[in-house]
Design a binder for these strands. Structure first.
Length: 565
RNA sequence: GCGCCUGUGGUGAAAUGGAUAUCACUUUGGUCUUCGGAACCAACAUUCGGGGUUCGAGUCCCUGCGGGCGCACCA
């Protein structure tokens, strides 16, 4: 709808003023028209006339076109266009039945690597991971619809100080370990490891001999991956717990029903590769030595200095990140790489990428970093996994399950629970803080996943009530839409444009908002207009189109549509 | 201290520089003898303060105040 109008406007501007522009066209508030443009303001300077005058001239030309029922000028020079019913109807036609063509030029046939969730081995997943997983899953699906070959990857720490802390604590206090060996519930084992991580962290912060032991253990664990020396009590515990964590990740991602990652990159597998890059970069002057460590001087890019190799000769997270980046490039030859992490990593990641660009400038301009805000409790305090006061991802699911169970008692409860959680996270713009109150923030009413799921279920059931009287064909020539028919058709016609915008800005919330408004528009239509037994073919057709768009949108966001609720 | 981000109804959020700032929750009051009521309708704000740029500013610039995050061997 937008693009058709845009084309006509462009042609009209060319004809009247001989100027090439891409007119801005948008859907205005309903009172103004079906589509509107402020192209007259765009042109004012170039043409040297006042916008109002330009708009009047364009209106006269546009008024002649068949699809336009009315073209008027308002305010400083807005062009408001009301389409005739036939044009409204046919611009929503593309969405009927199947085979939506929603490819976007920026992504069509491009290789995209999407890295998200990035869990740490030896720690339970918390709400931040839950959020990133849901967001990443939705973006991946959106980009696939847009035509991209998407590879979902995740990168997490299976080596490093946090690991040493957990393993140290288990070795120190093996009580519970035997028990965990017996209990193969992934959630229980993950909990066991996390508790030791918290204890190990506390001991480390006390300093003294505990800290020294943990540092020593850290080196030992790195060596397991280079020497493959896996025959000790220490390595037995390490590899067992590492395996438990891996199983736990698979268990959890399956639990929330998101697409599988094509590839897990544990840090241990990218360390050596990163170290090689750092050594090479040191020779080329990208890195330099400082206090026996190897650092990158970010100041030359307006950033700060970061350590890539410790004075102990160990790689840091920075180096392992270089490793995974180049590994992904080699494995999937990405045209574009999108990374999702917490916003606390923003400045850090800039430095790593600056170093990478210095090493290999091909990467410049191919990478995007999306961040979610800090996940906070509703009282404003920040969660810290180090202190153990996290809201675990599983706690969120449990809390919402309770709410949903009270309200529905249906057999598709799980879909509704996950729908509530997913939509709640997706409906807000990417990047803002996530203030999280387990008991209150996940809604099942109003602008929520369950509202949309219910809207879908209801519409499907209505569609099943079709009788012989309702089987007529829509006849464009005699088509007559009333206020509510028209409003719904108009809203349906916007899907393609909204989807394109959501992809362009990597903003699932745009899509969420549209689907919610669509459902509201339908509910108004349904409240006022009879469908079943009406014998009005276009109402049935609108119902079908509505169901298809809703289904497509929700599915793309990773939200399942239940059969009943 | 330096850098980056942020401030929108009671609460949580939306708004490529465009028209009378949008939505949900809460609260208050309505609709309907259901095509599935998890519905529909109505009421509730001078976008933190002060300057500036612009035909036009929640949005851009400057400044003040408040909040967050990051700044070398953790991830």
């Amino acid at each position: 709808m937008i693009t058709e109008v845009q084309d006509r406007l462009k042609a009209a501007v060319k004809a009247v003023f001989g100027v090439d522009v891409t007119p801005t066209v948008e859907v205005p508030d309903e009172q103004f028209g079906d589509v509107a443009s402020n192209v007259a303001m765009q042109l004012a300077k170039e043409v040297g006339k006042n916008p109002r005058e330009i708009a009047e001239q364009l209106a006269d030309t546009l008024q002649e076109l068949d699809d336009f029922a009315e073209v008027s000028v308002a305010g400083p020079g807005f062009l408001n266009i009301r389409l005739n019913d036939e044009a409204i109807w046919s611009s929503s036609q593309d969405y009927s039945v199947q085979g939506f063509a929603l490819t976007q030029p920026d992504y069509d046939a491009k290789n995209v690597v999407l890295e998200y969730a990035c869990p740490n081995w030896f720690k339970e997943l918390h709400t931040g991971h839950l959020y990133q997983t849901i967001l990443g899953n939705a973006l991946a699906r959106m980009l696939e619809v847009a035509g991209a070959n998407v590879t979902r990857t995740t990168f997490g720490g299976d080596v490093g100080m946090h690991v040493a802390k957990a393993v140290w604590s288990i070795l120190k206090d093996p009580e519970g370990y035997a028990e965990a060996q017996q209990n193969d519930d992934p959630q229980v084992r993950a909990r066991f490891i996390t508790q030791h991580y918290v204890k190990g962290t506390a001991a480390f912060e006390q300093g003294g001999s505990d800290e020294a032991e943990i540092r020593e253990l850290n080196k030992q664990i790195y060596a397991f991956h280079t020497d493959k020396s896996t025959h000790s009590d220490v390595s037995a515990v390490y590899f067992a717990a590492r395996e438990w964590s891996t199983e736990y990740f698979h268990y959890f991602f399956d639990r929330i029903n998101v697409d599988d990652f094509q590839k897990y990159y544990p840090e241990s597998t990218t360390a050596e590769r990163g170290m090689a890059l750092v050594r090479g970069g040191l020779e080329d002057g990208v890195f330099e030595e400082s206090e026996r460590a190897i650092v990158y001087r970010g100041e030359k890019e307006g950033l700060h200095t970061r350590v890539f190799q410790t004075s102990e000769g160990l790689p840091t997270y920075e180096t392992k990140d270089l490793g995974v980046l180049t590994q992904e490039k080699e494995d999937y030859d990405f045209d574009r790489r999108i990374l999702i992490t917490g916003s606390d990593q923003k400045a850090y990641m800039k430095v790593v990428w600056a170093a990478l660009y210095d090493i290999d400038s091909r990467y410049r301009g191919t990478m995007t970093h999306l961040t979610n805000g800090i996940v906070k409790f509703a009282d404003g305090s920040k969660m810290s996994s180090r202190l153990g006061n996290v809201t675990r991802a599983i706690d969120v699911l449990d809390a919402v399950t309770k709410v949903v169970a009270q309200e529905s008692g249906s057999d598709e409860k799980d879909k509704v629970m996950l729908g509530a959680v997913k939509y709640e996270f997706l409906k807000y713009a990417v990047g803002s803080d996530v203030a999280f109150d387990v008991n209150e923030s996940v809604s099942t009413k109003g602008n929520s996943g369950p509202y949309l799921q219910y809207a879908y279920v209801r519409a499907r059931k209505i569609a099943l009530s079709k009788t012989n009287d309702d089987n007529g064909e829509v006849d464009i020539a005699t088509l007559s839409l009333d206020e509510y028919d028209r409003r719904l058709a108009h809203k349906l016609a916007q899907y393609e444009g909204v989807f394109g915008e959501a992809v362009e800005h990597l903003a699932p919330n745009t899509l969420c908002l549209y689907l919610y408004e669509l459902a509201q528009t339908f509910n108004q239509f349904y409240e006022n207009n009879r469908v079943a037994g009406s014998g009005i073919p276009h109402r049935w057709e609108l119902l079908t189109r509505y169901i298809n768009v809703l289904n497509h949108g929700l599915t793309t966001l990773g939200i399942d549509t239940p059969e009943s609720m």
